[in-house]
C-alpha cells in the first residue's frame, strides 16, 4: 500500500445483519433477565475487575444487541464473578448467571 500520509478510519456503522438473533434468543431463554437491563451502569460502576481492565456488563449487553458479540466477550473476559453487580442492580438482574451464560453462548 502506498502511504498517503493519512488513512480512512474504518466504518463505525453498526451492521445489524451481523447480529446472531438465534444466539441472543438462546441467551434470553438461559437468562431472561438480559431483557430487563436499562443500561444504568451501576454494575460497571461497582465492578471489581473494572478497576484494572475494560470490563462492563452494561456495554456488553449493548454490544450483543448491536451484533458485536466479540466485543461483549472481551468486555466480560476479566470478570471474577464476585457478585457486586448483582447486589447493586436496581432491576435485580441475576448478573452472575447472565455473564456465565454470555460467556458460554458467545464463547470466543
Amino acid at each position: 500500500m502506498i502511504d498517503f500520509g493519512f488513512s480512512v478510519s474504518p466504518s463505525s456503522r453498526i451492521n445489524l445483519d451481523n447480529a446472531d438473533k438465534e444466539k441472543f434468543a438462546r441467551l434470553a431463554i438461559a437468562e431472561p433477565d438480559v431483557l430487563k437491563c436499562m443500561a444504568c451502569g451501576s454494575c460497571t460502576a461497582s465492578c471489581t475487575a473494572g478497576a484494572f481492565e475494560d470490563t462492563s456488563l452494561r456495554r456488553a449487553i449493548l454490544s450483543l444487541q448491536n451484533g458485536l458479540s466479540d466485543d461483549a466477550s472481551k468486555l466480560l473476559s476479566h470478570c471474577m464473578l464476585c457478585g457486586k453487580c448483582t447486589m447493586v442492580c436496581p432491576r435485580g438482574i441475576n448478573t452472575r448467571h447472565l455473564i456465565l451464560s454470555i460467556q458460554k453462548i458467545y464463547s470466543l
Binding site: 481492565e53 473476559s77 476479566h78 471474577m80 458460554k104 464463547s107
Partner: peptide, 12 residues
C-alpha cells in the same frame, strides 16, 4: 463440568 472450561483473561 459445565463452567470450568469458560475462557478468561486474567493477565492483569
Amino acid at each position: 463440568t459445565q463452567n470450568n472450561s469458560i475462557n478468561c483473561n486474567y493477565s492483569y
